[in-house]
Design a binder for these strands. Structure first.
Lengths: 133, 133
DNA sequence: TGTACTGTTGATAACGAATCTCATTACCGT
DNA sequence: ACGGTAATGAGATTCGTTATCAACAGTACA
């Protein structure tokens, strides 16, 4: 049976407060910094649970997993700033359909897809332009 | 200056021969198995070089980087079997355009995108269906 | 062809993310 | 309140990747 613990709540809350993708380690450090005594392994477990039940999105970047809260039930993708991490949820029905049809075309079943767009957000685009010599 | 070594050639060739995505370690093991004395670090370096110069595609799966040879200059995505690794290159002009426009809409510049479709290829779909009790 | 310069190699150490172990804790139905 | 049992957490462990550094080998040039 699934139990309700303050640790899981803490992870869920800490993730819900954030706007951007964060790593398990960052989240653990933040919780510890906030006075919590939560363990690293627990943060990993909680994040894995959240992701598997659809309450969090995850993506792999530079060899580590990043997580972000999302409203369960909705399928969406992300537009992520390479510089500051700002993340925007985007819908892409056309892409969903394309993925399904291209999979079917080649005889593939049970298609999943990874679709993320990276770039520099408006603010960082300007900041970079002025900073470059 | 960039030097030409048999090690780099060996990695390039070994990658070119393969149809599917492989990890650096797999490639290293294969080369060693073939009688080569190439070092692991060198395989990692060669793969990183190939990827950065556009001669190889890479993707992250289960915490490790996988590589696959590709014809430089062409932009494409992949349809990958979750079971056997069979990979099909797919074109997706519609997706390119969608990615660019959605980035522009939100003020993002220099958009890159990660688009990969996973599933079970025709062969593995059948095999799994008959294997399940 | 010989030689000096310097990029490359490879064994191993180091690193870091993620997972495993297992004794202890504490949630929850009864 | 009680008991079983899932969850926790400190530390050890695994495993992919990168850094270190002395030895090596392309390459340009005389």
């Amino acid at each position: 049976m699934k139990r309700h613990t303050w640790q899981r709540e803490a992870v869920r809350d800490a993730l819900g407060v954030r706007e951007n993708f964060v790593s398990a380690q960052q989240l653990h450090a933040a919780l510890r910094g906030g006075g919590s005594s939560i363990g690293l392994a627990t943060v990993y477990r909680a994040l894995a649970d959240l992701a598997s039940e659809g309450a969090a999105d995850s993506l792999q970047q530079e060899g580590e997993s990043l997580y972000r809260a999302c409203t369960p039930g909705t399928h969406h993708h992300h537009l992520i700033c390479r510089n500051c991490g700002l993340t925007v949820e985007i819908e892409a029905d056309a892409v969903e359909q394309w993925a399904n049809s291209v999979a079917a075309e080649h005889g593939f079943t049970r298609p999943h897809h990874v679709v993320d767009v990276f770039g520099f957000c408006a603010g960082c685009s300007i900041a970079e332009k002025t900073a470059t010599p």
